[in-house]
Write a protein that binds this DNA or RNA. Structure first.
Length: 395
DNA sequence: GAGACGTGGCG
DNA sequence: TCGCCAAGTCT
């Protein structure tokens, strides 16, 4: 039976707590408050218990092949990119839409970048879409997806996790993709109390050893996905169902009662608030004035309603209106609140109707039929602004 | 290593 | 209402 050795255990208040054992994980240099504990050894839980559970409870997902069937690398890769920091439920419609528009990696590679961005609109983390497109072109140039972790790692948008996931799921390479699920499962299995994100490296090294043993080595794809399913159901972040877990009795977190509180996380900094103003103007032909955001930074290259910069102080109405894209009878439409990863945005929305756009509008951006825009291709924050403006104009 | 980078759902 | 979190990557 393989044994895991741990490097470090987090010790609050300097109290040493016994946990893992030491080993392939080199003890990192830590702050003084954090002590190290070398402890009893921990065993890798039997993979066959998880695989048996998976065979009975596996989720049916659009990108998964049936039991025993080999997965399509394009489908696996596309789903893995979409699923980064994104829920299965949110991905579903986008995944189907993408395969309709871009049935093969060749179709995706030869598509316009803006068509890919438009299809991604609303899903978030838009660098994923730009990297997706670039990656597709590299894959086509290479004649197909690399079959190895190292090869996959050279592609844009593919990091350590995704390389391992595609290698394991599409090509049967015996590696463990360490994502948030596997981090959580690992932290619980070995009762790792060191908080994320500092403990990420330790958890990754431990998690990578979970497939030691014959059962897991024989089914790399299923083992990886079994870990995802366990993490998404029984070993969920809140209220884990340890009582029915296939690894019950092999889990230090369950034995100690710490499981529900693991993994621990270092408290996050408070989010600052930023303020912006955006304008919706519609002509009698029901066209709206839009513009393209800069190629880099937040919502890079995405479409937006014209507006101001997003600054740390609110915009008084008089000042806001000086930034209107065209002269018009602007009506206040209230504020839209939107939470980004690292700040909260409050947008004051103004709306106006004009008979027709003057040449001046062409300097601001471009026109698009409002009905077409409302159906897609705007990031969510801009969709909120659009709706707020339309509500005022219609009401 | 820390910060940038979206969004929707849930308790 | 609000904070937390989800199949991370890049700089």
């Amino acid at each position: 039976m393989p044994r895991v050795v741990l490097g470090a255990a987090f010790v609050p208040g300097g109290v040493v707590r016994a946990l893992g054992a030491v080993l392939p994980v080199r003890a990192p240099t830590l702050p003084e408050r954090v002590s190290f504990a070398i402890t009893s050894s921990v065993k890798i839980p039997p993979a066959h218990l998880l695989l048996d559970w998976y065979d009975r409870h596996r989720r049916v997902l659009p990108w998964r092949s049936g039991p025993g069937q080999s997965a399509d690398p394009y489908h696996v890769w596309l789903s893995e990119i979409m699923l980064q920091q994104t829920t299965v439920k949110a991905v579903g419609p986008y995944y189907h839409r993408f395969l309709e528009k871009f049935p093969t990696v060749q179709d995706l590679a030869s598509a316009e970048r803006d068509a890919v961005l438009a299809a991604w609109a609303g899903l978030g983390y838009y660098s994923r879409a730009r990297n997706l497109h670039a990656c597709a072109q590299q894959v086509v140039a290479l004649g197909g997806f690399p079959h190895t972790v190292e090869g996959l790692l050279t592609l844009p948008g593919i990091g350590a996790y995704t390389a391992a996931a595609v290698a394991a799921i599409a090509f049967g390479v015996p590696v463990v993709p360490v994502d948030g699920n596997v981090e959580r499962i690992t932290a619980r299995l070995f009762a790792i109390e060191a908080p994320l994100p500092a403990a990420r490296k330790t958890l990754a090294q431990l998690g990578a050893q979970l497939n030691e043993g014959k059962a897991a080595q024989a089914r790399p794809s299923d083992f990886a996905q079994a870990l995802f399913d366990l993490g998404a159901s029984l070993c969920a972040p809140r209220s884990p169902a340890c009582g029915v877990c296939p690894w019950q009795g092999h889990c230090a977190g369950q034995k100690t009662g710490l499981a529900p509180s693991l993994p621990r996380r270092t408290p996050k900094a408070v989010k600052p608030v930023r303020y912006g103003v955006h304008f919706l103007v519609v002509d009698e032909a029901a066209q709206v004035l839009l513009r393209k955001r800069p190629e880099t930074g937040l919502l890079a290259a995405m479409t937006e309603l014209p507006g101001t910069e997003w600054r740390t102080t609110p915009w008084p109405q008089a000042e806001a209106l000086r930034h209107a894209p065209v002269p018009a009878d602007w009506q206040p439409c209230g504020t839209v609140k939107h939470v980004f990863t690292h700040f909260t945005l409050e947008v004051s929305v103004f709306a106006a109707q004009v008979k027709r756009f003057s040449n001046q509008a062409g300097q601001v951006g471009f026109l698009a039929p409002v009905g077409q825009v409302a159906s897609l291709s705007l990031p969510s924050v801009m969709m909120k602004c659009l709706k707020a403006g339309l509500k005022t104009l219609e009401g």
